[in-house]
Write a protein that binds this DNA or RNA. Sequence first.
DNA 1: AGTCATTCTTTGTTCAAACATTCCAACATT
DNA 2: AATGTTGGAATGTTTGAACAAAGAATGACT
Lengths: 252, 252
Amino acid sequence: MTAEKKSKLPVLRLDPESRAPLHAQAEQLLRQLIRRPEYSEGALLPDEVSLSRTLGISRNTLRAALSRLVAEGCLERKAGIGTRVVEPRVKSGVGAWHSFTREMESKGIKVETFFLKASVLPAPAEVARALQIAADTKVLCVDRVRGWDGKPEVFFRSYLHPRLGLTSQHDFRQPLYELIRAEASIVADQSFEEFTAMAADKPMARRLAVRQGTPLLRRERTVLDTGRRPIEFALVHYRCDRFRLTLNLRQG
Amino acid sequence: MTAEKKSKLPVLRLDPESRAPLHAQAEQLLRQLIRRPEYSEGALLPDEVSLSRTLGISRNTLRAALSRLVAEGCLERKAGIGTRVVEPRVKSGVGAWHSFTREMESKGIKVETFFLKASVLPAPAEVARALQIAADTKVLCVDRVRGWDGKPEVFFRSYLHPRLGLTSQHDFRQPLYELIRAEASIVADQSFEEFTAMAADKPMARRLAVRQGTPLLRRERTVLDTGRRPIEFALVHYRCDRFRLTLNLRQG
DNA sequence: AGTCATTCTTTGTTCAAACATTCCAACATT
DNA sequence: AATGTTGGAATGTTTGAACAAAGAATGACT
C-alpha cells in the first residue's frame, strides 16, 4: 500500500460576480488550497479533469493557472503521475541541474562540461554537516566547469557521500547523476539550497576566466536520495553578469 | 508620423523533424528573432495572427511561447497595441516596485505601506557614488515598511537625489514615485540592482519584527530618470523566509 | 480647431475536443 | 521469482473558434 492518499475533491468556488479572469481566480483559489494542511506535505492534487469540473472551468483555463504556480515553484507536474505540492523547504526554484541543462538545450544552447580534477580529502566541517558524516571522514571532491561556446560560465565543486562508493578513478566527464544512479542510489529531486553573493578570489577567477574580484553568485546545494539521505553537497559559482537572480514571493 | 515601423514578417521556420513541442520551438525562434538588431530597440513584433500563420502553428501555441518570454521579462504585451521587445538593459528582473504591488493585488494580497521617518543627512560614500553627488552632500533619507495582513515584510530606505527638491515635509505615505513624478522628473523603468544575503542586526530586526540574526535579503537599487540621471538609491531588506530568489540565465 | 462616437487592429479569455506521452499497477509469461 | 505486456490514469500538446477588452485612428459634428 502506498502512503499517497488520493485526495478527495475539495470544495472550491469561483466568484461569478468578479471581473477578474477565471484563470486568475483559479490561481488564487489554488494558492489557498495548497496552503491547507492536507496539501502541505507534498500531496497530490486532484487530477486536472476533476479539478476543472469542480471549478466549473475548462481544463485549458485551469492549466493556465497551474502552469503559473509550476513556474513559480509551488507545484510540480509529472505526466502519468499528477500534480503535487512542492515541499515548502528552502528549495531551488531552478530544480535540479540536469533539468537546467535540458532547459538550456531547449533554448538552443549546447552546454559543455569540463572535468578539472577529483581528489579524496577529509571533509571540511560544513561538508560533514551537510552529508551527515563525522568531520574529517574522507570524501571524494570533484571539480568541474560548465559553459557554452567554449567559454566557462559555472564552476562546480561536488562533495560525494562515501556511501556511493565512488573513487577518483571513475569517469567524471559523463553526467554525475548517471554515475550515481548506476553506482547505488536513486537521486531524489530534492535539495536544500542557499545563495550568497561574493567576489571571485584568485583560484575561482582562474577557473571562470574572469578578473579577480568579479561578482559571483555562490550556491550551496545538498542533494538527497529517495530515502532522504544526503548524497552530494555541491558548491556552485555563477558569474553575476551571466546569471540573474529574481525575487519571488514564497508561498505559505 | 510615428517612429514605430510596422515590421515586415520575418522568415521563420520550425523543424518538422524535431521531436520538441511546437511551442518550445517557437520560443526558441522568438529568442533568436528578438536578438536581431531590428528588434533590439523595443520595436513591435508582428501581430500574433500573422506570426502564427508565418510559423504555421495556431495562435494558442504561439501565445504559450510568447507568455513565457513575457514572464521572463524579454517581451511586453499590451492589448490594442502589440508586443514589443523590452530593452535589454541591466534591468530589474522584478520590474519596478509599483508593478510588484499590482501583481500582489492581482493575487488577492493587499499591500500596506507604513511611513517610518524622513530625515536629511550627509550622503554616505556608497550613496554619494550611486547618486553621483559629492560625498557628504545633504540628501533626504526616507524609511518605510511594507507588508500585508498587518505584518511587516519589507523594509525600504530610500536616498533621494537633491535635484528632486523633496523635503522631509512632504507626505511620504503616498507612493514615492507619484511624488517624484509630480515634483520634477519622469521615472524611467531602469535600475541597477544587487542582492546580498545578510543577517538582521538589531534595528532591522525591530523594523521587520523578526529575531536578531534572522536571514535577510539585502537589495541595492539605483533608479534612473529618462535622462539616465540617478534619482533614488534604495536599500531594501526582505525576510528570506517570505521571499525567494531564483536563478535565471541573463538574456543577451 | 476641438470633441465625440465609430471602427479597426491587437491582445486577452475561454471553451471543447482530440491525440500523444509518461508512468504505474495489474496481469501474464518465462 | 524475474521479466514482459498491457491497460488505465494522468499530464502534455495542439488545434479552431468565438467573443471580450483595450487602444489608436478615423471621421462626423459642433
